[in-house]
Design a binder for these strands. Structure first.
Lengths: 214, 214
DNA sequence: AACGACAAGGGTATTTTCCCCCTTTTTTTA
DNA sequence: TAAAAAAAGGGGGAAAATACCCTTGTCGTT
């Protein structure tokens, strides 16, 4: 009997994580050797067990204390050879891209079927990666949109955040230690770049693009 | 050996639903007798099996085809004695209230611990209800806020939706077939009621309260 | 007759939006 | 490396829109 592939689950959803362990252990060639409830305790474990022989990490994206993206960044820096599949309930494009650019080998939605789930695990362990059509599609879309994407400067971002309040431009100028005329310049430039005509449009843009949270 | 309590799971997340079945079947006094992937197929089942002896439904809130709230409404109309626990990944207050006012006996987040989960099932079957502190807190909060809540008239809602675009008030007036001065009155009245000072504030209010979606 | 709601006008102060212009760095490029 | 070109901060002025206050008239209820 050949040794089973060792898997670690990092997820704060206790019910999900426990259920997932049951499911994985029901696959005869895999076993869950550890579960952690957030990135912080998982990283502590890795630091204390330098030679841990884990084959695959199932890493939740939404966690308290240390989230998936931050954990992934640490892994990229310190354990670049660890194979990680990111798990998430939603298909937020931004997060998916961040996880993948930080070295995740795959991305699975939590409502994936057990079959696809198993395929993903096998594929990452054997071939080194696994992408569903959803994720591949996003990568392509992102690659295309990168070209046309407006990139906002830090000062502009700060201005936009202020613009999404009831402050007048004069007040914003004073808070940013700039002349109202400079603020006027920022505004006009943004209207141009974002193809909007009013401050309302700016607010809507900021919210849609999560520059401000509501 | 006394008969096990019969449970049905309605959830489109196949992985979750399958894992949950494993978990529940591991409790010795419960068994999952059926799983359905949305409200529609579940209701079909109920209609074809009038005398189904199910003790408890675990009903997911977010489903395609027929969501949790709609399914709950049907149950309230047609099978008011069915015991239902609503399941959800998020704690959206509005949804929770809707599920409960439509007769759900309990509300559990999917990341609840297996222990609390088991308690919930037992409590609903034996006592008829189960509320976590989170949900109880919401019920109280809702009860209080109902009193002070601003209620907006239909025309005001329409105006707000227009105000959340780049249209000028003059254009909005024309679209609503009213004088710009009337619109001005709407605006002033809303600023007063909502304790805001600018159109930006109105936009933020509308988005926060889901009058407009972004 | 009184009242509140709705629609709308008059008038005005403030803010927003939009031009065109200037100077001083900083960055590119020839 | 010097010249050219952006980028960044600021200004004048004005039209348009927004915000505020106060008044009028018309309905339908009470």
């Amino acid at each position: 009997m050949k040794p089973k592939n060792k898997i670690i689950i990092v997820d704060d959803h206790m019910l999900f994580s426990q259920s997932l362990e049951l499911l994985i252990n029901s696959f005869k060639d895999f076993e869950v050797i550890n579960r952690f409830e957030n990135g912080k305790v998982f990283i502590s474990y890795l630091q204390e067990n330098i030679d841990s022989e884990v084959d695959l990490i199932l890493l939740d994206v939404n966690m308290p204390v240390l989230d998936g993206v931050s954990t992934m960044k640490w892994i990229k820096e310190n354990r670049p050879n660890l194979k990680v599949i990111a798990l998430s309930v939603n298909d937020d494009e931004e997060i998916i891209i961040k996880m993948l650019t930080n070295g995740a080998k795959g991305y699975l939605l939590k409502d994936t079927s057990p079959e696809i789930f198993r395929n993903g695990i096998v594929s990452v362990i054997e071939k080194g990666f696994f992408f569903t059509e959803l994720v591949s599609g996003m990568l392509v879309k992102k690659a295309n949109s990168d070209a046309t994407k407006v990139n906002l400067k830090d000062k502009e971002i700060i201005f936009i955040k202020h613009a999404c309040t009831e402050k007048t431009y004069k007040e914003i100028a004073s808070e940013m230690c700039l002349s109202p005329k400079t603020i006027d310049g920022y505004r006009e430039c943004l209207f141009d770049k974002l193809e909007i005509k009013t401050r309302i449009g700016l607010v809507l843009y900021a919210i849609k693009n999560k520059i401000v949270l509501v």
